[in-house]
């Protein structure tokens, strides 16, 4: 083995790989189980985008709050939400992260700083600004962070939040996940500027663009803007250019894509393959260690599914609980 040339120690590299792999296999499994009719509702998969959530979230702790999107499984896993609770939630079971009341689009775990996936586009940014305001007021050193798709970044709430965070100098990070599409609509059609970093500049917020399939690029860029936010330097925007491997939601025929686009992405822009190549070619991590993680992850996902399937459904008494402090 060579000396580690990466900005993370070997243990952290393995941890990063494990997180990305867990997200990938979680989503691949949901894709299959959805196809078999076992999963109800709308399911938006994060496969292909793992390096972004993972490279960013490795800089965060439970004090740091994130507001996620409809495509939230990856954010949850990278923020440390228990995959068993997530899987049970997606299966609509009472053992789920939200007792079966939220489902795929609404997984939350406030104890982990995960403020919730969201069914409303653009809803997360103001909420995360609130988290940043709370962190600043309480002085606990945490930050607020919102994830927003390329499409949802055209919501007024997102643009208003950029200005709000700037004038209040909030410890806030705006992550724009640019996977090229909002449902079937191209970012080139829906967004007038070439980059979201340019847009941030118009709000007096520094912006940076990274290759969201490159874990190391994400990790480094995120590290800098998160440190700046923590140290009182104010908000930043980070645009991750990435690819989504599946359709917008499960059931999407994806006829809007170019010929061979998905195959090309899987072959050339797979963040897991790229990561593996980098760390093994540098002779820092042994491929066998990654293989071992692969098997452990698959076993963990299998267990999560088995537990979710076996878990009880919520009952009639659960219908009217948790509307207010006391119903």
């Amino acid at each position: 083995m060579n000396d580690n040339v990466f900005p993370l120690g070997n243990e952290d590299l393995l941890e990063a790989y494990r997180t990305m792999k867990t997200i990938r296999e979680f989503e691949e499994r949901l894709h299959v189980d959805f196809g078999r009719g076992e999963i109800p509702g709308f399911v938006h998969l994060y496969a292909g985008e793992e390096a972004a959530a993972t490279g960013i979230m490795m800089h965060l702790n439970d004090q740091d709050r994130i507001a996620s999107t409809h495509r939230g499984h990856g954010h949850c896993i990278a923020k440390g939400v228990d995959i068993n609770a997530m899987m049970a939630e997606i299966y609509g079971k009472v053992t789920g992260a939200c007792r079966g009341k939220g489902g795929s689009m609404h997984i939350a775990d406030l104890s982990k700083g995960m403020m919730g996936a969201n069914g409303i586009l653009g809803a997360g940014s103001p909420l995360a600004c609130g988290a940043a305001l709370a962190a600043k007021t309480l002085g606990h050193g945490g930050i607020g962070m919102s994830f927003t798709g390329d499409g949802a970044s055209n919501q007024g709430t997102f643009l208003e939040s950029l200005n709000l965070a700037a004038i209040w100098n909030l410890p806030m990070v705006f992550v724009v996940e640019n996977n090229g599409y909002a449902e079937s609509t191209s970012v080139d059609y829906a967004t007038a500027v070439d980059s979201y970093a340019d847009r941030a500049a118009g709000f007096g917020v520094p912006g940076v663009i990274v290759d969201g399939t490159d874990f190391f690029a994400v990790y480094e860029a995120a590290g800098e803007i998160i440190r700046r936010a923590r140290e009182g330097g104010g908000p930043s925007l980070m645009e991750c250019k990435m690819v989504r491997f599946f359709g917008h939601f499960e059931g999407d025929a994806q006829t809007y894509r170019g010929a061979g686009e998905n195959e090309h992405n899987r072959a050339n822009r797979d963040c897991l393959k790229l990561f593996r190549a980098r760390v093994t070619e540098a002779d820092v991590i042994d491929g066998g260690d990654l293989d071992a993680i692969d098997s452990e992850v698959l076993a963990a996902i299998e267990q999560a599914v088995e537990q979710a399937v076996a878990a009880p459904l919520p009952g009639a008494a659960d219908l009217t609980t948790d509307v207010y402090v006391r119903y």
Partner: peptide, 17 residues
């Protein structure tokens, strides 16, 4: 509306959705 045609600016089918 959003995607009432679909595929705007995308490489594939027009009226994709």
């Amino acid at each position: 509306g959003e995607d009432i045609v679909g595929g705007s600016g995308s490489p594939g089918e027009d009226d994709a959705w």
